[in-house]
Simulated assay, not measured.
Amino acid sequence: MEAPHRTDILISGGGMAGLIAAAAFGADGHRVICVDPAPPITAEEEGGADLRTTAFLQPSIRLFERSGLWARLSAHAAPLQIMRIIDAGGATPEARLVREFDAADISEAPFGYNLPNWLVRREAAALIDDMPNVEFRPGTGTEELVTREDEAIARLSDGSRIAARLVIGADGRDSVIRNALGIPVRTTRYGQKALAFAVTHELPHRNISTEIHRSGGPFTLVPLPDRDGKPCSAVVWLERGPEVERLLRLPNDTFEAALNARSTGILGHLTPVTRLSSWPIVSQLAARFTGRRTALIAEAAHVLPPIGAQGLNMSLADLSLLLDLSRGEPGSRDSLDEYQRRRWPEARMRMSGIDLLNRTSMIAPRPLRDLRAAGLGALYGIAPVRRLMMRAGLGAGRD
């Protein structure tokens, strides 16, 4: 049998987390191979393009700067200066409670920046294409993994074998790497689905991200750069599954009316400008994040509802710590033990918080929605609590 090709880092998965990981490890001087069964879709108009956006918080922006990716992304990013929470759980979908969290209360910088997912993939793929020590192999997946004390050997779908000091599973919620390690997962299904699309609107967003609670799940408007000379935002709309299916079947004008009713008119009239995408909402946590010479990041390790900009930011927190721990011997037992010790409890804690927020946002009975509004109003009205929650959301003081 032919000897395996050797590298420092093998990344299984070429989604956003995998491509960013390849760029970051490459920028740190490691030899990297990244594989994915499918090529990245890097244009908004292509079929199958990921039309969601991600609010990258400041710790993630620092990782982008470290990898060289921020220079490619900054011109396309919309800053997030204020996070606004609205309760619209009364008899009609109108704002009856508004609380705002201003980044200026804790920092001179905004909370972060919002970017389209397809664009991040495009720029990450372009960056690693320019790195002589990084190889991206789209159209090639990982099929088998054997781990040893000194290396892990993966067999790829093209028949080749790769020996790496560290294998990173960034291959999603059905991770081949996690399954090869025999790591179980705990999954919670909420009976919800999310709709994601972009809208233009009459009023400027003023770099404010708005999360509106009524029932079924939060309705979130996240700033984007202007589109065709008009203010633009990304929408993530969570509802129970049957309601999302009903919304998807509506004629365009009826859907637009439902959209504007749900938005409480906070940005004036909203007009959809991209196709709708939808996906089921679950939370999922792997029983552990490591094996011999192997680490799980992103959705291979944890999946959670799109609330509070925690999903991909948690994934990049995984990556940032793994980078720091890999400065000596990538994949060493000590480094992976430390990664497990620090990231798994942090992920479990944040998932518990997001689970509570999501279940609270799903409340349907009117009396319970009234209690929710009263509780949120009291909690968010206490200045020290507000600052603590903002710092916790950013991951300040952790990792």
Rank of each mutant, 00 (worst) to 15 (best):
R246D: 14
E94W: 03
S326R: 08
S160C: 05
T254Y: 00
P132E: 14
D334C: 01
E100V: 09
D370A: 14
P345F: 10
L276P: 07
A257M: 07
E243Q: 11
I183E: 00
A347V: 04
L80K: 10
G308D: 04
G265S: 11
A383T: 12
Q192F: 00
D324I: 00
T187G: 04
A21Q: 03
Y339V: 00
R348C: 12
R398K: 14
P4D: 07
S283F: 04
S263H: 03
G47F: 14
L115S: 02
A287C: 11
L376V: 08
D129A: 12
P218W: 04
A163D: 09
I86E: 14
A258L: 03
M389D: 05
L336A: 11
S320L: 08
W118P: 09
D28V: 02
E44G: 14
P231E: 07
V185F: 06
R293W: 15
M1T: 10
L250C: 09
G216R: 05
G159C: 04
G112L: 02
I20N: 09
L221H: 07
P384Q: 09
L319M: 06
G308W: 02
I106N: 02
I153Q: 05
A109L: 14
G18M: 02
A163I: 00
A234I: 04
V185W: 02
P132C: 01
E123V: 03
A298R: 08
E211L: 01
E135T: 11
I33C: 10
L285A: 13
M314G: 08
P39L: 05
H205P: 08
P280R: 12
P231W: 01
S315Q: 07
G217A: 02
H76Q: 13
D150M: 02
L276I: 15
I33Y: 05
I162A: 09
A301C: 04
G169H: 01
D130H: 12
H205V: 00
A163L: 05
Q340S: 03
G191W: 05
P384R: 11
V146N: 15
R227N: 05
T210D: 07
P116M: 06
R292E: 14
V273M: 03
R148Y: 11
D318Y: 10
I363C: 12
L115M: 01
E100S: 13
L322R: 06
G15D: 08
G139S: 03
G353P: 03
D8M: 04
N133R: 15
T7P: 11
R398S: 15
G47H: 15
